[in-house]
Design a protein around this nucleic acid. Structure first.
Length: 746
DNA sequence: CGCGAGGATATTTTT
DNA sequence: TATCCTCGCG
């Protein structure tokens, strides 16, 4: 009896084929993660190399974590040493050690898309580029594609010569990179691009990593782009023990540079490739799988394979055609409620999928009204929220003061009476003397013509300096709390007293618990938690990383986010031409776009294990206008006998869901926190009392979500909030902000 | 310098 | 529809 007995023939073959390039064509639900983990276990067990000489690359942190846990379980011990991580975090790890070799500072900051946009906007203004003809998103995506295809600034300039439009892009590309360099920052694409550059320019460093990683494995290979392909080739260049796992039918990230050719041409690029197909599906019913097969077979360019399953036929796929999107939401909610009440299924069995984030709103309103617990993934993520970005900008500035973008973001947040004029004067001074913006701030006294504002800038300078000092002496969480206190951010929000401000306060509280969690986790891993590690962690999380299998809620997400997940019951909503496939792809000359969306549909269908419910609406409000869309062509590709058609006629003219029905209290977008909406559970994680009365006093026993139970030592009243010192048996004495800590009396 | 009004603009997906 | 940006006034 061995751990490999449960694998089928092909899975075994893949597991035991360790040497040389291996292409695993693994259909949806065919157990590819199983194979990867068993393969890692096998390599270690056979002593082919040490655990830390294996590299497994995934796309999300969640997938990485899952893989590491499964390896650990399989081999008992040593799984922790396998290098399992995402492309981006692998690159950060490498760059943090060697980026100085190519002229960057090792303490670089990672910019997100939001930051990138600001720079582009700024550059367009400075270079007088007419925003009528050049959209910032276009410029950004041009730069991004260039990097993804490994086209540097010079190469781009040459290529652009003679083409007006591209010449502008090229200018902006230069401006953008200059600016990032000045701020000691890298964007997502740079992380990969510069790693490849590093390896190209420094073969000695590459050699080190080639030697280290005897076996390289890549998950979701169909979604790799040019740089990623290059990086993998570099790493596996010496031993050629490269195993890639993917499904060309699930390639859905072309817009981000993913190149399906990477999988279609793998055999040509790596000679002597062994190809193994995994075609048995263990996830879905026969009916669901057949529907998926019938849809995807309409695509022309694909590797031939046919997924099959031993599972039961299962139910027919339910299809609802409603009159409007509110009815659609009602159908979904009703079905979930019936599953929960009548069939005693947990909420977490259900996922609601849609093409665009905007569609989540109506669904959410309905679920809230029906008291169904749910959580939305994607959309404006937690880390993109204004208040969170503001606080993070403070942390970034403390960590890397030459990050001008972040300094400018917070110099007047909260309001300190530093306006545009002052900022421009500081900027001019910095430019004149070739220093960073923050250097200019440090020298306010020397800058003429600032008048009253000089004192304000001085205040700001002092705040940052005192934060820097705090970082030296305090734990990370205490540091974060002191940052929040010193900015006066909370005080301002609390004064507002609106629901919106309340939501922001909650989000900031959540940020504090994130850093506390981070601290605890790092300590458990035996590492010293540092601010820069935290910022890095935060920069590289994907929304889907937050999915918690143990919590009971309905998951709402886009089809893209759903890749790699599975649920017993799946709702595919908004199945209408114009929405899915999108209007853009229908209009496009390029027929591969319709095929790309068809793959997305295939991904959606194959997420379902037992039950698939397809919804479409005859009319839909979109950007304030009602659209009448035809049923999605993809639904028509599913044979009738697999469908149980409901609501095709008007059986859903229920009065209580007409347009005049009372909507739940409208919640502002900024109000949302990342905490799942918990119906029927009154207790919020954070106390909301605006008045400063605490339910505990000195000497009382209190409970903290992270540190457990402790005893209150002192309570020191502050202007905005009390500072409470608690003695926890687990971690010792901690100073906490009463409002933020979420302490509960025992 | 701060604030509010009004206009333009985006809407496909995101590590 | 919702957000973001600009502009003009106090």
């Amino acid at each position: 009896m061995s751990i490999y007995d449960t694998l089928n023939t092909e899975q075994k073959e893949a597991t035991f084929h360790t040497e040389g390039p291996l292409l695993l064509l693994a259909g949806a639900g065919s157990g590819k993660t199983r194979v990867l983990t068993h393969r890692i276990a096998y390599i270690i067990e056979k002593g082919l190399c040490r655990p830390w000489e294996i590299m497994a690359i995934t796309f999300t942190n969640k997938a990485a974590k899952e893989m590491r846990e499964r390896v650990d379980k399989l081999i008992g011990h040593g799984g922790q040493d396998v290098w399992v991580s995402t492309f981006h975090s692998s690159c950060v790890k490498i760059l943090r050690r060697h980026i100085d070799l190519i002229g960057y500072d090792k303490s670089f900051t990672i910019y997100d898309t939001d930051d990138a946009k600001r720079i582009i906007r700024d550059g367009m203004k400075k270079q007088n580029i007419d925003p009528k003809y050049y959209k910032e998103a276009q410029i950004l995506s041009a730069i991004s594609s260039a990097k993804n295809e490994l086209i540097g600034q010079d190469a781009y300039k040459q290529m652009a010569a003679g083409d007006m439009r591209k010449e502008i892009y090229s200018r902006m590309y230069d401006f953008y990179q200059d600016r990032l360099k000045k701020n000691n920052a890298l964007d997502f694409d740079d992380l990969l691009f510069y790693t490849v550059e590093l390896f190209r320019l420094r073969p000695d460093v590459l050699e080190q990593y080639q030697e280290k990683f005897k076996y390289v494995m890549v998950d979701e290979y169909q979604d790799t782009n040019g740089v990623q392909f290059k990086l993998v080739s570099q790493l596996a260049g010496k031993y050629k023990n490269l195993c890639v796992v993917g499904d060309d039918d699930q390639s859905i990230y072309k817009f981000r540079g993913a190149d399906i050719k990477n999988i279609l041409d793998f055999e040509k690029v790596f000679s002597g490739t062994k190809v193994i197909k995994l075609e048995q599906n263990y996830r879905s019913t026969k009916t669901i799988l057949e529907a998926a097969n019938q849809v995807i077979k309409n695509n022309s360019r694909r590797k031939v394979k046919r997924l099959w399953t031993d599972n039961d036929n299962g139910h027919q796929i339910k299809f609802h055609h409603t009159n409007n999107e509110k009815e659609e939401a009602q159908v979904v909610a009703d079905k979930i409620i019936s599953n929960v009440n009548t069939f005693k299924k947990p909420y977490s069995n259900h996922a609601i999928l849609y093409r665009t984030n905007a569609q989540s709103r109506v669904l959410e309103e309905r679920l809230m009204m029906e008291d169904v617990p749910y959580k939305i993934f994607g959309g404006t993520s937690f880390y993109q929220r204004r208040e969170v970005k503001d606080i993070l900008a403070y942390l970034r500035v403390v960590n890397n003061s030459i990050d001008d973008l972040s300094v400018k973001r917070i110099i007047n947040v909260p309001r300190r009476g530093i306006g545009n004029t002052t900022i421009e004067k500081l900027d001019a001074y910095a430019t004149e003397y070739g220093m960073s913006f923050f250097d200019a701030v440090k020298q306010v006294e020397d800058i003429p013509g600032l008048a009253r504002a000089a004192a304000k800038v001085g205040d700001f300078k002092n705040i940052i300096f005192s934060m820097k000092a705090d970082l030296e002496t305090l734990s990370l969480m205490e540091f974060m709390e002191s940052v929040i206190r010193k900015t006066g951010y909370m005080t301002d929000l609390r004064k507002e007293g609106t629901d919106e401000a309340e939501g922001r306060i909650e989000n900031i509280g959540e940020l504090v618990s994130k850093i506390a969690e981070f601290e605890v986790r790092k300590k458990e891993e035996g590492e010293v938690p540092t601010l820069s590690d935290f910022l890095e962690d935060v920069a590289l999380v994907a929304q889907i990383d937050a999915l918690d299998e143990n919590a009971d809620y309905v998951a709402l997400m886009t089809l893209h986010s759903a890749k790699g997940l599975e649920f017993p019951t799946v709702f595919l909503t908004g199945m209408e031409d114009g929405l899915f496939p999108s209007y853009m792809s229908i209009q496009s000359e390029d027929e591969t776009e319709i095929e790309e969306e068809r793959r997305l549909c295939y991904v959606g269908i194959t997420r379902a294990e037992e039950e698939l419910i397809i919804c479409a609406s005859k009319s839909r409000m979109l950007r304030g206008q009602t659209q009448y869309n035809a049923l999605s062509r993809y639904v028509k590709e599913i044979p009738d006998d697999l469908l149980d058609q409901q609501g095709v006629s008007d059986i859903f003219s229920r009065s209580n869901i007409s347009n005049t029905s009372v909507l739940p209290k409208k919640r502002d977008k900024t109000f949302f926190t990342t905490a799942p909406y918990q119906a029927k559970q009154a207790a919020k994680p954070l106390p909301k009392n605006k008045s400063i009365t605490l339910e505990y006093k000195e000497g009382d026993l209190v409970k903290h979500s992270k540190f457990g139970v402790g005893q209150v030592v002192t309570i020191e009243p502050g202007g905005a909030d009390h500072q409470v010192t608690v003695n926890f048996p687990s971690v010792g004495k901690k100073k906490l902000m009463a409002m933020l800590s979420g302490l509960k009396k025992m």
